[in-house]
Design a binder for these strands. Structure first.
Lengths: 179, 179
DNA sequence: GTCCACATGTAAAGAGTTACATGATTAT
DNA sequence: ATAATCATGTAACTCTTTACATGTGGAC
């Protein structure tokens, strides 16, 4: 799953500019894929040269012009090649977990701070997903609702477990100093 | 969190070769960080040039020689700079979830296949973590056990939710064809 | 008066992957 | 015979990030 595949997937829904695409990513699947403008714009230009998409320039006043991209037949074929290829294993880079692995090199204070920080982050993300779920009544297909539900279940489990861990941690560090 | 940081973290435990380091990664934190030999060897060479680690060549018969790397004082400082820097947000690339988002473009058959595939993968990973947890009595510090426990909770939630989703999916596709 | 939203793009650098090359030993 | 384990390394490539450049209009 590369930038190109996801871009084709969203252009299949509606023609869009690079700017729109980034906001679409952030709104609809912030947890599955991230891309910066530095990735999106060059990718769009390459895809246009290759004939996967077509540019339509919208002249605007007071704002820069917009390049609206439409998917072509070739683009649709490229998307179907992706969607029918074997699923790629997920890759995670989870600095918080790595810190726990190396936890013996820092103070208990530091670890507690990390735990609370991560808990806040997880709670925030969970809230966003739940809001998305409530707003999604009609515009999402059944499959997208499944994805959301799956994501929420995982996130919720993370929050619950972290809360337990923090409670125990605070308890044990009051009694014995050698956690 | 780059390759260098994790390498320094494991060399802090014990001197090791590039080959050992990769196996250490795979055994102890397969879900948090992945690195290929193509990353590890060039990184080790660069780190040696920079004085973060020192090479000790072990001559072997019947096998290629081993380069055992030891962490230096400079390396320890570099590690502490990492461990005290702000935690980086986790990044995920989760093709399976993306496929669900684009699910309307494929058959129900295909989706069910994806769901079952992912369930098997999650179950397998969960089993590995549980085995690791049982084997970990002494060699892991309290923090590492927390990391493991946290990972297991998340993984377990994924398995449970996917099982529910699959059960519902099979039910609904028997009755109405328009999932 | 300062920051954010709109809108696109380039250049340089960083990080990592895949595939190749080498070669002995051990297990099936 | 054939594959896996041990062990290191390079080269080419891909992907992505960060930082810069440009410029208007509206909100606080």
């Amino acid at each position: 799953m590369k930038g190109q595949d996801v871009i084709l997937g969203v252009l299949l829904e509606a023609p869009m500019s690079g700017y729109d695409i980034k906001h679409h990513f952030e709104k609809h699947f912030p947890d599955m894929f991230v891309a910066s403008f530095g990735t999106i714009y060059p990718t769009l230009n390459r895809m246009e040269k290759e004939g996967l998409i077509e540019k339509e320039i919208i002249l605007q006043e007071g704002k820069p012009n917009k390049n609206i991209y439409h998917i072509t037949e070739m683009g649709k074929e490229a998307f179907h090649a992706y969607i029918q290829s074997p699923i790629e294993p997920k890759t995670i880079k989870y600095d918080f977990m790595m810190r726990l692995v190396f936890g013996k090199h820092v103070s208990q204070q530091q670890i507690l701070e990390w735990l609370n920080q991560e808990l806040n982050q997880l709670k925030e993300d969970l809230l966003k997903l739940k809001i998305q779920q409530e707003d999604s009544c009609d515009c999402y297909c059944a499959c997208q609702k499944l994805a959301l539900r799956f994501g929420i279940a995982i996130q919720q489990a993370g929050v619950t477990e972290l809360e337990n861990i923090i409670a125990e941690f605070e308890c044990s560090s009051q009694n014995e100093k050698t956690f």
